[in-house]
Design a protein around this nucleic acid. Structure first.
Length: 189
DNA sequence: TGCCCGATTAACT
DNA sequence: GTTAATCGGGCAA
């Protein structure tokens, strides 16, 4: 049987947690699937929301690991993050793409598209498909409506530069499942 | 206070 | 390939 990921899983280096999340299963109210693409963010690099210090928006990032940080992107979309490392480190993993496995009909209704590959392939898309909004900001990952299960068996993880950044764009902190057709963008090489 | 811009997406040409 | 939608943070004035 699969194992639930608890807060101790997240209380490690964000660069260790991020690749370990590939292949894990995330459900929100029973809707979701396998994580196939994530990105790491650390307060010491300027692309992170926490880089300039604590604000009302990023406060959850400065709290303990294993909690959810949700922010509004471009005034339109929601983006889902998992807080990592000991409290105060202000690091997090952005969830960028999911392979849908549970609640496909609900996702299609929320997204307004039928093609499976377009349901969760992107940070904004997966939040819409899973019904994630600001009301989830600050909630614990090991309690309802969230369920997070460790991956079973081996997963081949690849890394590359993060997407959509103008700062610290060279850091190879994007991780994904090799060859997955549900990535928001393929990995080079 | 005002202005610029972003961890995006979809609908254009 | 380009652009609009839309809003809060950061910084200049």
């Amino acid at each position: 049987m699969p194992k639930r990921l608890t807060k101790s899983f997240f209380g490690r280096s964000v660069l260790a947690v991020a690749p370990d999340l590939i292949g894990a299963t995330l459900l929100v109210n029973g809707v979701g699937g396998r994580l196939v693409e994530v990105e790491a963010y650390h307060h010491t690099e300027p692309a992170a929301h926490s880089f300039r210090g604590l604000t009302p928006r990023n406060a959850v990032m400065f709290g303990p690991p294993g909690f959810v940080y949700v922010y509004r992107s471009y005034g339109i979309h929601w983006c889902l993050n998992f807080v990592c490392e000991p409290a105060g480190s202000a690091s997090a993993v952005l969830i960028r793409a999911i392979e849908p496995t549970e609640g496909l009909a609900t996702m299609r209704r929320r997204r307004g598209v039928t093609e499976e590959r377009l349901l969760c392939s992107g940070p904004g898309r997966l939040c819409q498909a899973l019904g994630v909004t600001s009301k989830h900001n600050g909630l614990a990952l090991d309690a309802p409506p969230f369920e997070l299960w460790a991956r079973q068996g081996a997963v081949e993880v690849v890394a590359g530069p993060r997407i959509g950044l103008t700062k610290a764009a060279d850091l190879p902190w994007r991780y994904g499942e090799k060859g997955s057709r549900f990535l928001s963008k393929p990995f080079a090489g």
